[in-house]
Design a protein around this nucleic acid. Structure first.
Lengths: 231, 231
DNA sequence: CGCGAGCTTGACGTTGTTCAACTAGAGTGG
DNA sequence: CCACTCTAGTTGAACAACGTCAAGCTCGCG
């Protein structure tokens, strides 16, 4: 399902990532000529860990999860990508492979841009290169926080963090309908799905959350933040 | 303790990082004019987490640990840096702060290069920029592996990994004298120092290691690798 | 000789996983 | 319209993994 009808071109695109604002018309057109826009159904794989890295993805619609396929079929969700976010592989300049998988959590459309184009831009447009380095660094910093979360907090703190994250970074309103599964929350917090459910139950009983199936309402954000901070 | 006597200049330096081979004479001289070489005693802080990021460090002698200061005075060691490795902060282009601390594990000497110089190089030398992106990506990939290690392996697997790492990446010979403490191994593997000691004892009793104070000999590397792989 | 820091050990309690069973809801075919 | 099935969610109980606490040890150093 390839189409360029939906968005006429990168120059006028309302859903393009900020980084493309750093390009001149000629460069933008070059990107435009080397992209594919396509839509993935819920659950479908966008990038598969281990496969060749040939394109970066820019999410224009929906929600995708970025996750490492670890030991014994266990996954670890690194982050999510929603519209306007770009997913660039760390395999660039290294081994040109994907080091994590990306899958659509909801129906998701993405523009795929050839990595060669990105590399050309890096080489010829220093501002673009700096911005990319900035983004890479921001991801590194976020990963440091994640390291501490996963290794030094216990379950309650990790789940509290997760719900604050889902509210502030993903769904952006309260109450919200979660489109990710309990297993996804487990993969995000590195715990078993059974314990995810148990901790949610505790929070619900304490009046911190209202949970009705997939509808979640954060009732006491401050307390959740406190739990997340103290571990 | 500032000196430039030890190494006459960057151009002839035998201990410079490969990345500087990508610079021309003029650029190298620019670096040379904006660096300080200094020596840190064992235990001394080279960079402090949270402090302003003004320089990157190139280790020319000794061994340093890079660690996040987490919750309740607990640290997490991200990696080590030994001679010829460069330590560049992820705060560059972001908030210009250090996001981890760096401390000398042994007496360590380092060249400190102003981040402004590095940024100028990135902007004017695309090959340098690409190489830096490559390094950043390699670190990201290593961090993914660390995520899986810390969240999906249990203590025996993590300790086995740690000793293989110390042998292959840090000390490079067998037997070797560890200059890091048990607490450091604990911070590296995200476990308590008591359990580090207990697992080492098990490995010793199983004939995988010989341990005499700080002298370690890997007796059965294959089995340790197997334990590390299976978790 | 005594002191202090790092190392070691055992006992104990807590945290978190696993396993098995059960439930609810969404699709599917007769 | 009703079984049937499949998946996600839920619960409880048993168990394993891991951290904490307290005590004792070793060794270098003043």
């Amino acid at each position: 399902m390839l189409t360029k009808d939906h968005l006429h071109n990168c120059k006028n695109c309302k859903k393009r990532n900020n980084i493309f604002a750093l390009l001149n018309d000629e460069e933008l057109e070059h990107v435009d000529n080397n992209r594919y826009e396509l839509t993935f159904n819920k659950g479908e794989i966008i990038f598969k860990q281990g496969s060749p890295l040939t394109h970066v993805a820019c999410i224009t619609e929906g929600l995708a999860k970025l996750y490492i396929e670890g030991l014994n079929k266990r996954n670890l969700i690194l982050s999510f990508a929603k519209p306007v976010q770009m997913i660039g592989g760390p395999g660039m300049f290294v081994d040109y492979r994907h080091h994590f998988s990306v899958a659509a959590v909801e129906e998701t459309t993405a523009c795929l841009v050839d990595t060669k184009i990105i590399e050309e831009l890096i080489e010829h447009n220093p501002v673009f290169a700096c911005d990319l380095l900035k983004r890479t660094n921001q991801i590194s910093i976020a990963n440091f926080k994640k390291f501490i979360n996963l290794t030094q907090k216990q379950m309650h703190g990790r789940i509290a963090d997760a719900f604050i994250f889902l509210l502030d970074e993903i769904y952006g309103r309260n109450p919200f309908v979660i489109t990710i599964s309990r297993q996804d929350i487990a993969d995000l917090t590195a715990m078993s799905k059974e314990n995810v459910i148990r901790v949610i139950k505790v929070f619900r009983d304490q009046g911190l959350l209202r949970v009705d199936g997939n509808v979640i309402e954060i009732l006491n954000k401050k307390e959740l933040i406190r739990i997340g901070e103290t571990g």
